[in-house]
Amino acid sequence: MKKNMRLYKMGVFFRKFILYFILLFFALLWLIPFFFLVMGSFKSTSELFQVPFRWLPKHFDFDNYINMFQQIPFLRYLKNTLIIVFFSVVGALISNSLIAYGFSRLRWPGRDKVFMIVLATMILPYQVTMIPLYLMFTKMHWVGTFLPLIVPQFFGNAFYIFLLRQFLTGVPKEITESSRIDGANEFEIFLKVIMPISKPALASVAIMAFIRAWNDFLGPLVFLGSDRLYTLSLAASMLKSNYDPNWDLLLPLGVVMVLPVLLLFFVLQKYFIQGITMSGIKG
């Protein structure tokens, strides 16, 4: 009996070890592309193409980064990206909080049926609406401006509506009752009572809207024309498709594009996870 117990314990330990090892193996594998990106960003073009492959660059100097900032109008692309990001986040916060409030804390006939339509739009592939939107924005002279990327953000997004509604449904009714008795109108209640307590959920929405706008590729590809309006993502893809991709500039650009998102993640990790979790659970 005693022997068996020891065997069992050894078995448990061994199993734990195996599982941990598997995880560790994959986790390290997962980091390799990042490692490559950072190391590659220090390599010269000839080093990048050198056979056999070497993990580390010959020199760690910032020549590539300096060249990148000098040869690519990085600040312009950054500015364009930030304009779109800013309005996307603002638009998402304003519109989705209002809409979610209307779907969760106010009752009106047909509400839940309409909400089903909201949910249904979540599975609508963007490609279905892309062409008519392109034609519509063409007629409105919006193609070649930021407007097609910004304006729709002010009219709600099913994903964020769902997320905020989940949150607001969980807020007890009593919280708004007293203000209502005090004669506050609905908008005041929304602004002064609900908004302040929704900060964590709003933070999640803001972060997701930020990431989405920062990383978006298809939208800018379809709607932006001139290099003057290019976002970082679009610029990176265009540089890649040049006759000369200049990899020694592209990889540093990649690092610079990833960094802000990673920093944001490590600072606001909680809200990232919360947003994804809330949208996913029992979805």
């Binding site: 519109s95 209002l98 809409i99 409030y101 209307g102 779907f103 106010l106 009752r107 009106w108 006939p109 509400r111 309409v114 339509i117 909201v118 739009t121 609508l124 279905v128 609406t129 892309m130 062409i131 008519p132 939107l133 034609l135 519509m136 729709p152 002010f154 009219f155 709600g156 509506i161 609905e186 929304f190």
Partner: peptide, 30 residues
């Protein structure tokens, strides 16, 4: 309350009609 509710949801309704429903239907036509 119903009026307020619809007012709050109005941005979505406009967005849905303009940026989703109209495109879907015109896409079908095209």
């Amino acid at each position: 309350e119903a009026k307020n509710g619809i007012l709050f949801v109005l941005p979505w309704i406009i967005g849905f009609l303009g940026f989703t429903l109209y495109p879907i239907l015109s896409s079908l036509y095209y």
